[in-house]
């Protein structure tokens, strides 16, 4: 039982990270009906910003976190304006290929900077507490609570601010939103900033939990988080969170009770089955066709 709870805690930690990344996919999809396939690499950049500011500037946790978030937010906004916006009217496949290209660029740009892998030094004091056989580390507490805090902030922005209202309106019918006097391009930029920033935060936390980082670390994690977003119902914010935690739990539990090589295979199979049962994802609903 304790072992099970212990794994539950690990699942919560990994699931939080997947959920944060999945939110980035789902927000961009919700507003542009486009999958930002470079998002996994945004996540990687978050980990690298953390590495740079901690190693070379000696910054502690909080400023490193803030810089990772802001840095990746800016990256998202710039990539959208420079690479995706010109293609908004183009066939969808152009945007997909461009996103993949941006991802490859980011990987190779990072790769060209210096030899890998890198090691992020520990920036928070590693204490742990034990309650009746259950051990919690300070890192776990930080990752889980910080993720929940970021998700709460996101929920507040989307549900209770003017710009969040505009995001929801755009996800319903982008064409009508300018007629409300809303500058749609600005709202899209803000969406990219938030979605990418969450990916940056996830990258940093991931880098703290698994401190060996390399330029390709975002590929597999990105794909997994993307699948988590799809399983939750792409475009649906709550769905992305649920999908992230389901994926985290599946992976941890499979690895806990089966040989670890089964992990990805089993996790992906489960997700595929979920999608066969619920093709629009857990929270997704088929939208009535507009005439």
């Amino acid at each position: 039982m304790t072992y099970f709870l212990q794994q539950g805690l690990n699942a919560l930690q990994l699931g939080s990270i997947y959920a944060l990344i999945a939110l980035g996919y789902t927000m961009v999809y919700g507003i542009l009906s486009m999958i930002n396939f470079a998002h996994g690499d945004f996540f990687m950049v978050g980990a690298f910003i953390c590495f740079v500011v901690v190693t070379f500037m000696g910054l502690p946790f909080v400023p490193a976190m803030i810089l990772s978030i802001i840095g990746v937010s800016l990256l998202g906004v710039i990539v959208e304006r420079a690479a995706y916006k010109p293609l908004r009217q183009a066939p969808r496949v152009s945007a997909i290929i461009t996103a993949l290209g941006v991802g490859i660029f980011l990987e190779n740009f990072t790769l060209a900077l210096s030899p890998y892998p890198k090691h992020i030094p520990a920036i928070i004091e590693n204490t742990s507490w034990t309650f009746g056989g259950l051990t919690i580390s300070s890192l776990q507490v930080i990752i889980i609570l910080l993720s929940l805090a970021l998700m709460t902030v996101l929920h507040f922005i989307v549900q209770h601010t003017r710009v969040g209202m505009a995001m929801r309106a755009i996800s319903w019918d982008k064409n009508v939103v300018p007629l409300m006097g809303v500058p749609v391009n600005n709202v899209i930029s803000i969406t990219f900033a938030i979605g990418s920033g969450l990916g940056g935060a996830a990258g940093m936390m991931y880098g703290m939990a698994y401190p060996i980082i390399d330029p390709y670390m975002g590929i597999i994690v990105g794909w997994k988080a993307f699948i988590a977003a799809v399983v939750g119902g792409i475009g649906n914010i709550r769905g992305a969170v649920i999908g992230g935690y389901i994926l985290g739990a599946t992976e941890i539990m499979v690895a806990a009770f089966f040989p670890s090589t089964y992990r990805d295979f089993t996790a992906f199979s489960l997700l595929l089955i979920l999608l066969i049962v619920r093709p629009y994802g857990i929270m997704g609903k088929p939208r009535p066709q507009k005439v």
Binding site: R162, S171, W172, V182, K290
Partner: peptide, 20 residues
């Protein structure tokens, strides 16, 4: 076709229009 945002409340639909 009216262009109502069906996922927003009535009040939010009105509020969005005051953006400018």
């Amino acid at each position: 076709g009216r262009g109502i945002f069906g996922n927003l409340t009535v009040l939010e639909n009105l509020k969005l229009a005051t953006w400018q």
